[in-house]
């Protein structure tokens, strides 16, 4: 076991790929992997990139990788694409735009399908990020699915969040909507060579003026990812924010507590789903007839499930 951990820590790509597969798919090895990497977490700069479909997230990441590589940093990318809600299948196409770096051992890109998970990531994406962190990547970039207003899960995982907008997407009112716009540490208006770029940037700045800002003033940056314009400034802003976030990062114990709670919720759901149909049907009937309230039914089902396991 420690054999593979050594290889992972030494940056072996095949081991990294397989350890990711294990945690992504919760294979029998997954628990051992997570246990072993836990003491090695928290070294990578984790940056989340989110924004609507077509804003240019993947292209921006491609340009950002180039800047990071020029600065001598190694990079891991976790790119999430949506799964079909009907068939479960997925086309994972984010890496089409990141083609400039294959063959560079300092770059490792892994695509994940969201597999029905809402929130912009996949259910096990956080673990995949952890494996990349433990493998010694300096920077781990997380690309969410093309996000609307509520795919804000990346906020829980990435200390630094970049929200990418494209010019002319939505009218003025979009700029004050809750959700994705509220989680930004850095705004990017990509495709800034298009006519409406200044107006979009202006709207974002207007919105930010109404916001309380503490130590960090949220910048609105303009980039043209395809032409590599504005990327140095973006990389600098990410590095600055990450340094600041470092000091306010939740302590390892707080993070572990959160993970334990999440795992417990997962365990509870699975063990309730594993109860026999008859037991569940019985609770359903009682709830439907009004004999039992929902929370009471949930508590009893959980107690039963725990007793069984």
């Amino acid at each position: 076991m420690s054999d593979w951990l050594e290889r992972l820590r030494a940056g072996d790509r095949a081991t990294l790929a397989r350890a990711i597969t294990a945690v992504e798919n919760e294979t029998p090895e997954a628990r051992a992997v997570l246990k072993a990497i836990f003491p090695h977490l928290g070294k990578a700069l984790v940056v989340g990139i989110t924004g609507p479909p077509g804003a240019g997230k993947s292209t921006l990441i491609n340009a950002y990788i180039e800047t990071l590589r020029a600065r001598g940093q190694t990079v891991g990318v976790v790119a999430v694409d949506p799964s079909s809600p009907i068939t479960g299948g997925a086309i994972l196409g984010d890496r089409i735009r990141m083609g400039g770096h294959s063959g560079d051992p300092g770059v490792f890109v892994r695509s994940l399908a969201s597999r029905g998970h809402l929130g912009g990531l996949s259910r096990t994406a956080a673990h995949v990020i952890d494996v990349m962190d433990a493998s010694g990547r300096d920077v781990v970039i997380v690309e969410t699915v093309g996000a609307g207003q509520s795919e804000v899960e990346v906020a829980e995982i990435a200390p630094t969040k970049v929200v990418v907008a494209a010019p002319g997407l939505g009218d003025d009112i979009q700029a004050i909507k809750a959700g994705i716009l509220e989680i930004a540490d850095i705004f990017v208006v990509n495709k800034a060579d298009l006519p409406l770029a200044d107006r979009t940037a202006g709207q974002l700045l207007d919105m930010l003026r109404l916001k309380d800002h503490g130590e960090w003033r949220i910048p609105v940056l303009k980039t043209v990812a395809l032409k590599n314009e504005g990327i140095e400034a973006l990389a600098d802003a990410i590095a600055q924010h990450a340094k600041l976030a470092e000091t306010s990062r939740p302590a390892p114990r707080a993070r572990a507590a959160k993970l334990i709670a999440a795992q417990a919720a997962d365990l509870a759901r699975r063990s309730i789903q594993a109860l026999e149909e008859k037991v569940i049907d019985d609770y359903c009937d009682q709830v439907l007839s009004g004999a039992l309230e929902l929370e009471e039914a949930a508590q009893r089902a959980l107690a039963k499930a725990i007793a069984r396991s």
């Binding site: 068939t87 299948g89 086309i91 890496r95 089409i96 294959s102 063959g103 399908a113």
Partner: peptide, 21 residues
């Protein structure tokens, strides 16, 4: 597209890939 519709996860790259890629 058909593999996707059959429930598979398909990494699609487009043409002109080198063998090392």
């Amino acid at each position: 597209t058909y593999l996707r519709d059959a429930g598979m996860e398909v990494v699609f790259t487009g043409p002109w890939k080198s063998i090392p890629e």
